[in-house]
Design a protein around this nucleic acid. Structure first.
Length: 199
DNA sequence: CACAGGATCGTT
DNA sequence: ACGATCCTGTGT
């Protein structure tokens, strides 16, 4: 099994998106002084997926999702938030994993500064919050996660309990999510995005 | 070119 | 429950 702290090799990402998403739980994201542990993920693409940015085929924005796995895909959402995705699969697969929540491991003071002085689970429980804490922007799209320097993805101890299921709630009761139980996965922890529940 | 909607967040 | 804030993809 993975050795904590080692860079994950690109081969890890060149597989179907859902097992990669599952195994990403517990892994570490490092950018400079800040290290975060992934506690919640969401898989997109890899098969017909009407919720994926690839649902209408190849476009300028989603181009990184069609590349071989192992790189970041960052996009701008709702006019104010950046979202970090990990691209997976071989070239042409059009799949990626949204990092939905983390817990702090290193650099807590810097994270709190970037998050407006907040603290507790509200700090990193949401995809926009994670990107803000890691100081990411569109310039990180296509950044390789398996090379030292910059934004890195490291192996970490897998969490004890992995919960998974479709998201439910305001806009999450979609049929396709019910048919795809591994789209969404989170660790058994308090560090779970607020708009996410399990059924 | 106009429009509708969006993988969200923080406040009310 | 709502507003912020703007980019993207589609339709005309």
């Amino acid at each position: 099994m993975p050795q904590p702290g080692r860079l994950i090799p690109q081969a890890f990402y060149l597989r179907p998106v859902e097992p990669v998403a599952r195994e990403l739980l517990g892994c570490l994201l490092r950018h400079g002084p800040v290290t975060l542990r992934i506690t919640e993920v969401e898989a997109y693409g890899g098969q017909p997926d009407s919720a994926s940015h690839c649902r209408h085929g190849h476009t300028a924005r989603n181009a990184p999702m069609w590349d071989p796995g192992g790189q970041a895909y960052v996009y701008f959402c709702y006019g104010m938030h950046h979202m970090l995705n990990v691209v997976t699969g071989p070239a042409g697969d059009g799949s990626a994993i949204l990092i939905r929540a983390c817990e702090p491991v290193c650099g807590l003071e810097e994270v709190r500064r970037r998050r407006g002085g907040l603290d507790g689970p509200v700090l990193l429980t949401g995809p926009g919050k994670v990107a803000q804490a890691l100081a990411l922007d569109l310039g990180f799209t296509r950044h390789p996660l398996y090379l030292p320097g910059g934004l890195e993805l490291l192996e970490g101890a897998p969490p004890e309990g992995i919960l998974r299921g479709p998201r439910v709630g305001i806009d999450f009761a979609r049929e396709e999510d019910r048919l795809r139980p591994w789209r969404f996965a989170c660790a058994g922890t308090k560090w779970v995005s607020q708009r996410t529940q399990l059924i």
